[in-house]
Amino acid sequence: MRFQDAAPDARHAVYAAIQADPLVARVAGLLAAATYPQRLLARAVMNGESTDAATWRTMFPTVLGPGSPDRDRAEAVLAGALEVAARGEEVRSQLRGAIVESLAEILVARRSGTAAVRRERRILFDGVRTEIHPYDLTVESPGREEAWDCKWGARGINDDVLNQLDDARRHAAAEERGLRAGLVVFDLRASCAVRLAERTGPKAGLLLVTLESLDVLAGMKVVAG
């Protein structure tokens, strides 16, 4: 098993520009340190119609109201999410995807170290035809390899993704290597459960990290309130 950069193509060039947007790094950085309610706020705003902050402050009194802890960060999350929402529909969608990937990268790097975490990489196995699509995120520490696909919403979970992740895991096992493969979904666990239940693709052994549990990527235990 070895990792390889994905061959640059037109999609790669467009997406690289999106990933390089400073707004992506700013929002991802804020979300990496955010709480579950702050992340839920970000998801709602980036998916919402309203672009005035007052509406969202009314909707999230326990996050943005007087006396809310870490209110400055919550306000910064709100401001960043509103900037994303203000973009056109297509750009907004691209930015959201890039933010989830960047957020996952930041969190995984806290556990694995920055040098081990790579983006847009393919995984090659002996005697196996290479997948065309790269993995969004890989961890390439010898003996602790991981492959992650990142999704803005549960709806993005499809059988192709499930098959690709499962293939990687099985091919690694055939080479007597361990590979942890999973999905990072910036959506609610319950919605992912609904989506996965209707998919026929392989799910056994799949790691699933959702909006409620993102901090496990950084190796942190998530404490339910």
């Binding site: 996050v63 802890p69 052994g205 998530v222």
Partner: peptide, 22 residues
């Protein structure tokens, strides 16, 4: 949610939605 200290009611640690393996 308590003001400012909000958490989901569903267990956040139980992230395996469809596969108990995960």
């Amino acid at each position: 949610a308590p003001a400012g200290i909000a958490a989901p009611s569903e267990g956040a640690t139980d992230e395996g939605a469809a596969s108990r393996d995960a």
